[in-house]
Computed example of a mutant assay.
Amino acid sequence: MSATAGAPLRVLFCIGVNQNFFDLPTGQHKTVWDATVNMLKQLHDLPGVDVLGTMDDDQHMVGPSDSWPWTCYVLADVADQSTVAEACNLFRTVQVGEYGLWRYMKIEARVGRSLPDVTR
């Protein structure tokens, strides 16, 4: 199977919550959640990104997720590699107080292509 020229990249953004989030005093987690919502909005609005869906596993997973299984996922079609990097960079630029979001969460992008649509 070969990739279709000009087709968007199918990207699974895997997001984990770091121990720093769980170390916050009770009541201070909302600032991280607000920054996360801000990051997701910026990701959705990023030119070249078409968010296809999200999944959050926070009701069945408690504690830090340093790797698989991740806490949440965003599946998107993305125009190119530089846009994937720009999306990941949001964790550096979105602020939580004096820190970047990366202090509390991490992201890993899995890049591939979509499977053939067999539903047609």
Rank of each mutant, 00 (worst) to 15 (best):
A85E: 12
L40P: 06
D56R: 10
G27H: 09
L46G: 00
V84Q: 07
A35R: 03
A76K: 07
D50Y: 02
D58T: 13
C88M: 13
V51C: 03
N38C: 09
H29G: 14
V37A: 15
H44C: 06
L101R: 02
P69A: 07
F91T: 05
G100C: 05
R103A: 07
Q28F: 06
W68S: 15
V51L: 04
D80K: 00
G100K: 01
K41C: 05
M55K: 10
T83V: 02
Q59A: 12
S67I: 01
M105T: 11
D57Q: 12
A85P: 00
A35N: 02
V51D: 03
L52T: 04
M105W: 07
Q42T: 09
E98G: 08
V84N: 04
T93R: 12
D77A: 06
Q81T: 06
V51H: 05
K30Q: 11
C88W: 01
V49N: 07
R92C: 07
D57N: 13
V96W: 01
G48M: 00
V96N: 00
Y104L: 02
D80L: 00
D80S: 01
C88D: 03
K41M: 12
L46S: 02
M105D: 05
V62H: 12
V62G: 06
Y104P: 02
V49H: 09
K106G: 14
A35G: 04
